[in-house]
Design a protein around this nucleic acid. Structure first.
Lengths: 135, 135
DNA sequence: CGGAATCCACGTTGATACTG
DNA sequence: CAGTATCAACGTGGATTCCG
């Protein structure tokens, strides 16, 4: 499914994109900003994610050096995930993304409605201001 | 696969994330910064994408009001895709992401190698500076 | 609590072929 | 050129079960 010879050599950005272009990964990174979080704590907060996918995503992020994994020998065992210094530099950018999303979600929804109504021409004219007025 | 009652109402950001957390979408948005681009032009530039997926992705982006689609009645027909004003506001944020990727790709790769070597402890200590020194 | 392993259903992708 | 349609193949995700 993946041809490193074609993708990564040409454009290293794609490798990074493959990681952060993941809804769950972004969500996790965002949640860890406040401090270390335990596995099931993440699981409960990010409603809708399965433990398998959460586990996989955490492992990928750890492999990329974006988060760290700390095991405490309590009974039962406690595992805390936290941002690494590298991971923290990424959350700043992710925060900008979240900011855009919060400010433009209405414009996107308005465009979708216009498109679904059958007039895509109107959709492309939707702006953040238009959406704000409509609200 | 999607429960709007759980996701979108709780956190509208997730809806936006579902769109932009897509490698191809981000790539397309990035390519359109310079100006309108034709379908097969995109297809050739983004090596590895199939025409079906490209078509689907373009349609989603158009529906979200991020790109516009212009048809010219030439023979054969010409179709140009371009950023909408709304889409342009997003590319600024995407550019920040690309910037992070370019500057930290080496740190990520170094972390991956450390992790794969069996010492995840080292991976979480990798920083952009470390990677720069190693290079 | 924090996973790993198994099984299975589903969606998504990639060829291929055809249309306007 | 710019798609759509169809179908088989694949991978990914969810549910469940069990272990340390």
């Amino acid at each position: 499914m993946y041809q490193p010879d074609v993708y990564e050599k040409m454009c290293p950005t794609r490798l990074v994109l493959d990681r952060i272009a993941d809804k769950w990964a972004v969500l996790i990174l965002h949640l860890l900003r406040a401090g270390p979080v335990r596995f099931n704590q993440l699981r409960r907060t990010i409603k809708g994610i399965s433990q398998k996918v959460l586990s996989q995503t955490l492992k990928k992020l750890e492999r990329d050096g974006l988060i760290s994994r700390a095991v405490f020998a309590t009974v039962p065992v406690t595992v805390e995930y936290a941002l690494t210094p590298l991971g923290r530099t990424l959350t700043d950018t992710v925060a900008a993304l979240a900011h855009w999303a919060e400010h433009n979600i209405e414009a996107v929804l308005a465009a979708q409605q216009a498109y679904d109504r059958g007039c895509p021409a109107a959709a492309e004219m939707v702006t953040a201001n238009d959406a704000a007025e409509a609200a």
